[in-house]
Write a protein that binds this DNA or RNA. Structure first.
Lengths: 208, 208
DNA sequence: CGGTTAAACAAACATTTGTTAGGTTAATAG
DNA sequence: CTATTAACCTAACAAATGTTTGTTTAACCG
């Protein structure tokens, strides 16, 4: 019988982790199969037993990363009902993902689909899947009628994606604080002098 | 006397333009010297008459791009006195630069300094030079005391940089409209607590 | 135990890559 | 007109890269 055999000493996970870390920190083209092999304790040719090509390896990382972040997002936003609070939680979760949890998420942020011609469409799809989570959150926001939700979404998406270039987990701010700050910029009028009227918000969940 | 000799048939500019376009659209590592040579009507080896290495060629593009955007920014923000209006103009200018003017600006956005080891520090410096323009604008904003200006700056910077991935010059929105929308998100409260969710879903306005 | 085969190794191959060395042409100065 | 040399060409090199092929090891099942 043909069962899904998988021996105990299978190093596929280790391989995927190594690839994710290298792709996240060095980019796709800057990372060689030899780099990945070395980090995962294998030889370059051995990788091809698990994945038929370098691009397929990236695709696997991408898929895993999207699955991780989507699940984390859904878990996080389930902890609140208020739309603005949910958005703040989503942003916090995103920052946490790219700074502490793993390197998979950073790969999605960093490696552009065009860099992987053979799987470009699939990568774009996966990206959309993740971005659609944010879109749904924005849709539920109670905003003024004049507000263009699509523009708002793109603004938030850009701000959130950019955190990977500056957020320092050793810095003074936690991901939750950044998420709250970003949402507060949108809730309260930043530019008004009497904006401090209501400046207290409830604390949500994770702080580290 | 030793004058700066430069013959009329010098194709240095053409070379730099070709490199900028390719770096902007394909990235640094994805672009080969042969690509650049082909686009600029030269042979690969000929490039080395103008620049000693591929990384130096990128540096030249970077420097030109920063000079362009800084000058464009200073020209733009000089047209208004109100800090918020100036910020809106800066955002518009940025979007215009990366979508219409040239490819130089997109290179700065896209190519990370770490990808160019020999000139990493210099590229980081050049990036800072451009980002400091935005910083100065944020500093001048009349914001509530509770607002973290640094976070605000990073949020705006992320949103603006991200426009290159979605802004469509053939779409319904102009760069100026996007700039105004972004600043208005911050001036006027996007969402108020007494507004009801999903009550007012605006349909008409879409980007790209 | 013994056969099967998952999983990895060892060693190369074919290309692509950035780069270089030496020769050629033509624009310019005197 | 002539000498100079900016600007480019031609042809190749050495290293790095993704990948392939044949071989070996050892985990699992009956």
């Amino acid at each position: 019988m043909k069962s899904a055999l998988r021996r105990s000493n299978n190093r596929n996970d280790m391989l995927l982790d190594a690839a994710a870390e290298l792709f996240a920190t060095q980019g796709f083209r800057n990372t060689t199969m030899r780099d990945i092999a070395k980090k995962s304790g294998m030889l370059p040719g051995s990788i091809y037993y698990h994945y038929p090509s370098k691009e397929d390896l990236l695709l696997a990382v991408y898929e895993s990363g999207v699955a991780q972040i989507v699940e984390a997002l859904e878990t996080a936003i389930a902890q609140a009902e208020d739309p603005w609070e949910r958005l703040g939680l989503a942003i916090s979760t995103h920052i946490e993902a790219i700074t502490r949890d793993s390197h998979y998420m950073r790969v999605i942020n960093r490696v552009l689909p065009e860099q992987v011609p053979n799987h470009r469409d699939m990568l774009t799809d996966l990206r959309g899947k993740y971005e659609r989570c944010l879109q749904a959150l924005i849709e539920d926001l109670p905003v003024a009628p004049s507000v263009d939700r699509k523009l708002l979404r793109l603004m938030v998406l850009g701000a959130v994606n950019h955190t990977q270039f500056w957020f320092d987990s050793a810095g003074p701010l936690t991901p939750a604080e950044v998420g709250q700050a970003f949402t507060r910029f949108l809730i309260e009028p930043v530019g008004s002098d009497q904006a401090t009227a209501r400046s207290s918000r409830k604390e949500g969940s994770n702080a580290s």
